[in-house]
Amino acid sequence: MKIPKLLQALLVLVVVYVAFKIFFNVILGQLIPSSLLTMYMFFVICGVFMVFTATEEGARELVAPIKALVEDPSKKNIRNIVFIIIPLLIGGYVYQKMVPSFDAPIELRSIHPAPPSSLKAFGKRYDLMTLENPYRKFEKEDPEKFKELVKEGGAVYIKNCQFCHGDKLDGKGPYAAALNPLPLNFQDVGTIAQLQESYLFWRISTGGPGLPKEATPWLSSMPVWQDFLSEDEIWKVILFLYDYTGQSPRSWGESH
C-alpha cells in the first residue's frame, strides 16, 4: 500500500522530532533546549515541504487530502471536527506561552570562577597563591591523627553541609531539589578534584556572596561559612571532602 504524501510528510516530521529528542536526551545525555528544538523543527518543516512540493505531481498529491477535506461534501463530519480541534490547539498553545510563571530570569554563569590571589576572612588576609591546609601534612606524618581530623571534619559536614550536598557528597541532599543551580556534586571529577584546597577554603569561607560577578553571586545559596564555622573546622571539612570521595586536591606548581 502506498502511503499518502501528506502522511509521509507528517511521518517524516514526527520521526525527525523524535530522533532529535532521543539523540540528545538519551544517547548524548544532554537534553536539547526546547527553544532551539522549536526553531529546528520550523526549518525542518520548511525543508520537508520544499522537497514534497518541488514537483508538480508531488505538490498536487500533498494538498489533495487537504483539498478534499475542505471541499468534499461527504467529509462534512471530519471537517467539522478538524475545524474545532485546530483553533483549540492554537488557543492551548497561546495559553501555554502566555501564562505567567514564577521562573527566574535566565543568567549566564561561570561555575568555577578564577579566585582572587588573596582573601580576607576571619579578620585576616590569606594569600591564596601559597595557602595550604595546615592539617594536610599529617596524612604522611601521623596517619592516626589524620584519621581523627578527617572524622572531625565528617562531623562538621554532617551537621552543616549534607542538607544540600548530600550524605554521599553527590549533591543530592534533602534540600537540593529546591535549589537551582544544583549544589555541587563532589564525587564528580569535574569539581573538587580540579581544585586546590585553598580554592575550597575561599569558596567555603566566603560562600555565595563572595563569588565574583561573572559567577552570579545572587544565584548561589551557599552560606558565608566564616560566620558559622571556625577556620579549623573548614580545614577539617576539606580534609573530609577529599578523603570521603577518594579524590586528591590539585597540587601546587601549576597556576591557572
Binding site: 536539547i32 533546549p33 521562573d103 535566565i106 561555575i111 537551582n180 543551580p181
Partner: peptide, 17 residues
Amino acid sequence: LTNAELKSLGGPYHKYL
C-alpha cells in the same frame, strides 16, 4: 534555556551544542 533545562544540564553550557 528555561530554568528546568538549566537544572538538567547542570549549567548554561551544552557539551555538544
